[in-house]
Design a protein around this nucleic acid. Sequence first.
DNA 1: TGCGATGGTGGATCAATGCAACTATTTTTA
DNA 2: TAAAAATAGTTGCATTGATCCACCATCGCA
Lengths: 167, 167
Amino acid sequence: MADQTDIDRGPLPTRVDQVDLDVLENTLSFYIRVLDVAVSRDLDERLQGFEVARGKWKITALLLIDNHPGIRPSVLAEIAFKDRSAMGRILDQFEVHGLITRRVSAEDGRAQELYITEKGSALAAKVRSIVVQQSKDFFDRIIPPAEQDVVIDVLKRAYHRLREIQE
Amino acid sequence: MADQTDIDRGPLPTRVDQVDLDVLENTLSFYIRVLDVAVSRDLDERLQGFEVARGKWKITALLLIDNHPGIRPSVLAEIAFKDRSAMGRILDQFEVHGLITRRVSAEDGRAQELYITEKGSALAAKVRSIVVQQSKDFFDRIIPPAEQDVVIDVLKRAYHRLREIQE
DNA sequence: TGCGATGGTGGATCAATGCAACTATTTTTA
DNA sequence: TAAAAATAGTTGCATTGATCCACCATCGCA
């Protein structure tokens, strides 16, 4: 067993504010992870009862199908960094709920084109406003607006750069 | 079915770079989510074979137990925004692998104190360097270092502010 | 025409998450 | 001081999601 008495680290940490985060304190990946958990949970609560609740990628898929009629499942999968089967299962759910339709592409018999239905489009409109409002509400409590803009700007470029690298 | 021909959105999007992200383009929560997926996957690959691979919170738990002898499971759960049962299962794994020991607290018979073992401490040292290096390597490819510092600074304060709010 | 690559599906496995019930202990309060 | 409420941790369970792999159909190209 490691020696537990050689260094005085102060009283036993029984409260969160007594704990320092070790090297994680200056590790960007840690903050990305922990904020992801918090913001995703908050969003899930706001989407209670909607067909797109739970799971990070249903929202993205729905909005993109709404905004890009004919988009392909494989493109959605690539955007979400998921494999095709995982995205396919999300689309199965959408189809069962009557949110989208799938058509075989005329140009490529292997590929599908995805189209939103009226019901799906109405849902997309609601979800769009909820998602935007939720992100704003959530981060307004913890990041000054001006700094939010800076972070979005940096992360946006990071995201697109990541896309470039992985292709 | 929604009208699919009323607006010309250009050619069918069959490639990722033809897709715009709709309102998500300026939604911070989207970037947090997508970068979390990417950085977490990258980290998992680097931790292949270690007892702490897979799952975001094993690393945090291990480092904090190493750095805070006697820390309590409930404190770890709170830091990770998880419930006590989920954290308890992680600690079960750690104990099975001989990385930590649990003792009943002398002050409070309900509570436990967690202590790292020699094996756990050695692992923590390795993991510490891997995690720091991984975050740096990963983000260095997609965010200029100076901007990384800005983002860390903002997100660090966001994280601590979130902690304050939720207590 | 044949062969490799691509798009999508289905199955199986594994891990994580969250909830509720339960025990034991401590703290509060009446 | 006895009863009630709160807290720490465990366990079981159901749901969900991620990942890997095999598989089928189709397309592109030699």
